[in-house]
Design a protein around this nucleic acid. Sequence first.
DNA 1: GTTGCGGGGTGTGCAATTGG
DNA 2: CCAATTGCACACCCCGCAAC
Length: 206
Amino acid sequence: MEEVRYMISDAANLLHVESHVLRYWEEELELEIPRNEMGHRYYTEENIIQFEKIRKLKEEGYQLKAIKMLVHNTNPQIPDELKTTEVVSKAQTETACVQTKTDPGMSKLDQFQLLMTRIVRDAIAENNHELGREVSTQVGDKVIKEMNYLMREREEQEEERFRKLDEAIRIRQKRMRRQKKEKKVKCRRGDKPGKLRLEPQESTLS
DNA sequence: GTTGCGGGGTGTGCAATTGG
DNA sequence: CCAATTGCACACCCCGCAAC
């Protein structure tokens, strides 16, 4: 199976960010992006997935420092001070609510999030050494199952998204090959070759 | 066939801007 | 104030095309 390589512009398009953002993230997060013979970055599907996750974490309000920890797996538990103030205050508000009582009309996901917020807040109040034990005793089987389910669901969504991305790229490559082939045929016939143009591609992704 | 030119894409580096 | 983002300048390389 041939490894798919995306140039920085392709990767930027796929991820809906500017190319200099990718370079910036690469630098700040100390990511190792492979280079080709020309010294140009190329991105594998693995890299794309990694950047997609980074982008999601950014959207969720995490700072690059926190994301860096996650990426390098040095400290999977992210302290609140590494979240934006907006995210922290939101979490605090939710925690305050759950302290009083839980709204019976709340969705399962909301209840789960509130539960997690409370657990994490309590755990942070203890020292870092106690944190792991504290969480593991409070997070019961039910929460773990919920977490696994949510994680699996999310992974499936991501897989589906990248399947679509891959399909779009393959269609484009196929089209380009066909155009080149047509061009060659025209050349052999003696036609004057026109400049190869890419058809504007409709976005198959949203 | 070779050469020169221009366009497009990429690189780095730094400064400016933005927003919490 | 600082982290994050954006913009700009300049250099390099590749490729297509026209002229010779």
